[in-house]
Simulated assay, not measured.
Amino acid sequence: MLELNIKNETSRLRAVVLGTAESNGPTPKVEDCYDPKSIEHVIAGTYPKEEDMIQEMEAVAAVFKKYGVKVYRPEVIKDCNQIFSRDIAFVIDNKMIRANILPNREEEVEAIDYIWNQVETNNRIILPEECHVEGGDVMPWNDYIFIGTYSGDDYPDYITARTNTDAVIAIQELFPEKTVKAFELRKSNTNAKDNALHLDCCFQPMGKDKAILHKNGFLVESEYEWLLNFFGKDNVFEITKDEMYNMNSNVFSISEDVIISEQNFTRLNTWLREQGFTVEEVPYAEIAKQEGLLRCSTMPLIRD
């Protein structure tokens, strides 16, 4: 059995699911894309190639190996994009919660059944059908669970709105001893620079008390201010619209001291090193074209 344990985003990582770019399938048609950034690259003819994405993911796997992290991979489904393992399920404490994701991504979930089946039965959680949630919107942070959501009446119009109020309530009921804090995110089906696909596209905690933030990703200024005050201005690295577009907030922590980041994030990586972090730089710019990066393609199972 798998003894799941995830209390926060930065404790020492021991086991993780890393997605796969193998048999990723042909470049999608515009109407089959789930986000504005992928559409941009399909139209421009710059959509990432499978072999480039495989190399990028292997670079991450090598970093995990260096730090002695046990890595699980999804079973490969022919011609299916399985890079973003964070979308399909997530762990809080000792529970694995299956994400209710876009219906045409159901088979991605089945590809990790062999992991799901190693979890004690009463710790496998399937939320009611009306609860929409993806792991990119859910961040356990010790006594808190931060959740990105969109509660506008036009929720159904946004393919980029992935987590609804029903899911926020359901997660609060699952973890009554924790404080669930929801944040309204800015959504756009057409403009990637105005679209916070998930909470981890505009916010991520690091170390013990630091965070990356992008103000424009939040619809309600007071919710952004709350995070700014929670971490403290001096501990927050504020990213620009272009940096958010390039997924600068979507790095991934192996521990409170070690962060995997994209090699082109010069400003961020410099700041992280100034704060005393070890930064493991990897190439991930091709995968970033699908509006996801390091946090999106990893699903932590066990942290110390």
Rank of each mutant, 00 (worst) to 15 (best):
T149Q: 11
Y150A: 03
Y150Q: 05
S151V: 06
G152V: 11
G152K: 10
G152Y: 12
D153E: 14
D154A: 12
Y155L: 09
Y155A: 09
Y155S: 05
P156I: 11
P156F: 12
D157Y: 14
Y158G: 09
Y158P: 10
Y158R: 09
I159T: 09
I159W: 11
I159P: 05
T160D: 10
T160W: 01
A161R: 01
R162C: 12
N164W: 02
N164Q: 07
N164G: 03
T165L: 11
I169Y: 15
I171Y: 02
Q172D: 08
E173L: 12
L174W: 10
L174K: 06
E177K: 11
E177W: 04
E177A: 15
K178V: 02
T179P: 03
V180W: 02
V180Q: 04
A182L: 06
F183Y: 13
L185D: 00
R186A: 12
S188F: 15
S188T: 08
S188R: 07
N191R: 15
A192L: 01
A192C: 14
A192D: 01
K193S: 12
K193C: 04
D194I: 09
N195A: 03
A196F: 05
L197H: 01
H198E: 05
D200K: 06
F203A: 06
D209Q: 14
K210H: 15
K210E: 08
I212Y: 01
L213A: 02
H214G: 07
H214F: 10
K215P: 03
N216S: 10
N216I: 03
N216E: 12
F218H: 12
V220K: 13
E221R: 10
E221G: 12
E223V: 05
Y224D: 05
Y224A: 13
E225F: 07
E225K: 13
E225V: 07
W226R: 06
F230L: 15
F230E: 15
F231S: 04
D234Q: 11
N235T: 05
F237V: 00
F237D: 02
E238M: 07
E238C: 06
E238A: 08
I239Y: 01
T240L: 06
T240M: 12
Y245I: 04
N246S: 09
N246Y: 11
N250C: 13
V251W: 00
V251S: 13
V251P: 00
F252T: 01
F252G: 00
S253K: 02
S253M: 12
V258Q: 04
V258P: 00
I259L: 10
S261C: 10
